[in-house]
Nucleic acid binder design. Structure first.
Lengths: 219, 219
DNA sequence: CTGATATGACTCGTGAGTAAGTTACCACGC
DNA sequence: GCGTGGTAACTTACTCACGAGTCATATCAG
C-alpha cells in the first residue's frame, strides 16, 4: 500500500480503529491480540495506531472506556428502576442481555483475565470496577441487613457470590449464541424460581420502560 | 555455578522442580511465569528443566496433573459421603478449604485463565475438567429433577451458576488469607442460611470422617 | 571410563515501539 | 482558476527486549 493520506479524518479513523480493536480484544483477549492484528483488521498500518493512541495499552484503555460505559449505563438504568432484590436482579440481567446482544464482545473485553495489570487501561478498568463494586455491595448489604446479617466479611463474601452468579449467567448466554435475550431472561426467572421457590412477584416487564408497570419487589 | 552433578538423583530433582513450579505457576499464572523464573527459584539452570520435562508446556502439564489430583481426591471424598444438596455443598467446600490451606496456590494453578489453549497441559486440564463437569452436572441435574425442571439448557445454566458460586467462595477465601478453613466453612453455612432460610439440617461435622456422624440431606 | 547430572552461551521467533520518508488535502496569495 | 508551502494522514522498514528452546561442554559418581 502506498503511503500518503486517504482523505479519512482522524476522528473517523480513530472511531473505526476502536470499533475493530474492541472486537479483537473482546474476542481474543488482550494478551492474544497484537497491535498488528488490529491494524490488519482495520486495513491500516501499525504506526498509525501508535500515532493516534500512543501504545497498545492506550488503545486498550479507550476500548475499555467505551465498553465500560455501555455496561455502566445499563446498570444505572436498572438501579434507577427502584426495584430491589430478585426483581432487580432479573431486570438487570434482562437489560444486560439486550444491551449486549448486538455487541457481545463488550462483556469479555471488560472481564478479560489477560488485561494488563497496570497502566492506563488498568486504571480505567479499576475506576469502572470500583463504581460497580460499590453499587453491588450496597445492594447486597441492604438485603443482608434485612435478613439480619451485618457482618462485613459475610457481606463481602456474599457480594463475591452474587457477582460471580451474575457473570456466570451472562457468560453462559454468551456461550449459547442462539439463545435470544428474551429467552435467556425467562430462563433466569425459571432458575431463580427453582432455587428460591415460586416467585409470583417476578412478573416484571423486561425490556420495557422500567416505570411503565408496577414493579415487584423481593427481599 | 560450575557444571557437573551435585549428587541429586533425577527423581528428587524433578520433585523439587515440580514443587517450585507449582508455586510459580499458581501464584503468577502460566503466561507470566518464564522457565528461567522457575529455574532461578529452584536454584538450577534452565536446560535442566528442558532435559527433564521437555518444554514449558510439559512442565506445566506435570504441575496440573499434581494439582488436579489433590482437588479431585477431595471432590471424590465428599461425593462418597453420600450427602446431597446443600449439606454436600458445605461438606465439599469445607474439605476444599482444608485441603488447600497448606498449599493455596493449587487452586489458581488449576483455574489459571492464562494457561495454554492447546498442548499436553491443556489435555491434562481438559480431562480433569471433564470429570469435574460430569460430577457437578449430575448433581445439579438430580436436584433440579426433584424441583421439577428437566430442561437440559436450564440444567446447563444452573450448573454454570453453581460452579461459579463454588469458585467465588474459594476465591474469596484465597483473597482473605487470615481466615481459617473452619471459620470459612462457618461463613458459608451462614451465607447459605441467609439465602435459603435457616438450615437446621446443616449441623454437619466438617473435617471429620464423613461417615462418623449421621449426615443431613437437603434439596 | 562411561553415563547421568549439570551449565554457559547461544539461536530464533515474536511482538512492542520508532525513525524517516511519502502522499494528498487545503488555505492562501496572486 | 492556479501554483505552492504547510500540515495531517499514512507507510515501509527498521530496532529492541524478552522468552522459548538448543548445543556444546564440563564435572562428578560408580
Amino acid at each position: 500500500m502506498t503511503a500518503g493520506t486517504k482523505g479519512v479524518a482522524r476522528a473517523d479513523r480513530e472511531a473505526q480503529i476502536i470499533e475493530v480493536a474492541c472486537r479483537a480484544f473482546g474476542d481474543n483477549g488482550y494478551a492474544a491480540t497484537s497491535v498488528s492484528d488490529v491494524a490488519d483488521a482495520a486495513g491500516i498500518s501499525k504506526p498509525l495506531i501508535y500515532n493516534y493512541f500512543g501504545s497498545k495499552d492506550g488503545l486498550h484503555a479507550v476500548c475499555v472506556e467505551h465498553a465500560a460505559a455501555v455496561l455502566w449505563s445499563e446498570f444505572e438504568r436498572s438501579t434507577a428502576s427502584g426495584t430491589v432484590g430478585l426483581a432487580r436482579a432479573v431486570l438487570t440481567l434482562d437489560g444486560m442481555f439486550r444491551a449486549l446482544a448486538p455487541q457481545r464482545w463488550i462483556w469479555r473485553l471488560v472481564f478479560d483475565p489477560t488485561a494488563p495489570a497496570e497502566g492506563v487501561s488498568r486504571d480505567a478498568l479499576a475506576a469502572y470496577e470500583g463504581k460497580l463494586f460499590t453499587l453491588g455491595e450496597d445492594g447486597v448489604k441492604e438485603l443482608m441487613r434485612l435478613a439480619g446479617n451485618t457482618d462485613p466479611d459475610d457481606v463481602s463474601a456474599m457480594h463475591a457470590v452474587w457477582e460471580s452468579m451474575f457473570r456466570s449467567l451472562v457468560g453462559w448466554w454468551l456461550d449459547h449464541s442462539e439463545v435470544s435475550p428474551e429467552a435467556m431472561t425467562q430462563r433466569c426467572i425459571r432458575l431463580f424460581s427453582t432455587v428460591f421457590g415460586d416467585l409470583d412477584a417476578l412478573a416484571i416487564t423486561p425490556g420495557g420502560d422500567p416505570a411503565s408497570d408496577a414493579p415487584a419487589s423481593a427481599g
